[in-house]
């Protein structure tokens, strides 16, 4: 080592101080925005979950854990959660699984037109969820929607209450719409992961005797493991947080068949004025999402 090691930290200290100051200044706008729109509301929500109040209440009544106890005994809360879990599981299968299959096809299954299909499949990702919801309401409309027309033309029965109006179908339809909108994003993630695996790894593997399924198992899967973990966690978190799509298409109906935590929280807060209870459910959602987010960071660091 050409320099004595002790002189190094001493020499760098002033520079680091200046660096810290300017770094704080640079991050300030982002920190302020996060603080005002995310951190402070979250803290207020946590506090509010221990009180009973409505939108217009002048006084908040402290109720301790009553809002949380109410949630535990509220069958609708559990129905909403189970619907969330249904969407989470269904979305992981349809979006991550479907995205993986599409990515694999685009990566090596087709000879030409890859960019074209990639663009088409990715397009719904950049459309706002509200617009997607309205488009699909038109498609699924029992009177004028093209889906009914197609199904009828094939001589198959259509649901009497409509695709979104039939409680036994509506949640599946939401799954379909969510998949249509998001599968392109997962496909892009996984495609990037697949294309990051060097060709030589497959060549070396083929010389080592691993082809086809074995190559997939030993080379492809470990190669995209981190991407799959990331894609799954993004989908899981998205599945728990889902609101706009459900709110616009079904509003949680029919008969709460598509009620999710997001819509039920909204209904309790703004339709019934139970702000405290809504806050408690929002905190449950927040804690779930935070846990999953922490898991995501942890898993991606390990890889």
């Amino acid at each position: 080592m050409p320099f004595p090691p002790t002189s190094k930290p001493a020499g760098r200290r002033p520079a680091m101080k200046a660096g810290a100051v300017s770094a704080t200044a640079m991050m300030a706008p982002a920190l302020i925005l996060v603080g005002v729109f995310i951190l402070i509301p979250a803290i207020v929500a946590v506090i509010g979950s221990f009180f009973d109040f409505s939108m217009t209440s002048a006084n908040w009544t402290y109720v301790g854990g009553a809002n949380y106890r109410r949630a535990v005994t509220d069958p609708l809360f559990w129905l909403a959660i189970s619907n969330n879990v249904f969407i989470v599981v269904g979305s992981v299968i349809s979006q991550v699984g479907g995205g993986a299959i599409l990515a694999a096809i685009l990566d090596r299954g087709i000879r030409r037109g890859g960019v074209f299909y990639r663009t088409i499949i990715f397009m719904p990702v950049v459309i706002s969820s509200i617009a997607v919801a309205f488009v699909w309401m038109l498609i699924l409309d029992p009177n004028v929607g093209p889906l009914n027309a197609v199904v009828k033309a094939l001589g198959l029965p259509t649901p009497k209450l409509g695709w979104l109006g039939d409680p036994s179908i509506s949640l599946w339809m939401l799954l379909l719409i969510a998949a249509w909108q998001n599968v392109g994003f997962q496909m892009m993630l996984i495609l990037a992961g697949l294309q990051a695996i060097p060709k030589e790894h497959y060549e070396a593997a083929s010389l080592d005797g691993a082809r086809g399924l074995k190559a997939f198992w030993y080379i492809t899967l470990p190669g995209i493991r981190n991407v799959l973990v990331l894609a799954t966690l993004i989908t899981v978190i998205g599945g728990f947080k889902v609101f706009d799509l459900v709110f616009v298409t079904t509003g949680g109906g029919p008969a709460n068949a598509t009620q999710v935590l997001g819509t039920y929280t909204y209904t309790q807060a703004f339709s019934f004025g139970n702000m405290g209870y809504a806050n408690a459910m929002a905190v449950v959602l927040l804690v779930t999402a935070a846990l999953l987010g922490w898991l995501q960071v942890r898993l991606s660091r390990r890889g």
Binding site: P198, E200, H201, E203, A204, A205, L207, Y218, I219, P222, G223, R225
Partner: peptide
Amino acid sequence: GVAMVFQNYALYPH
């Protein structure tokens, strides 16, 4: 009955 050594090593990273 051949084994190959690649320019960029092609070691399996995992």
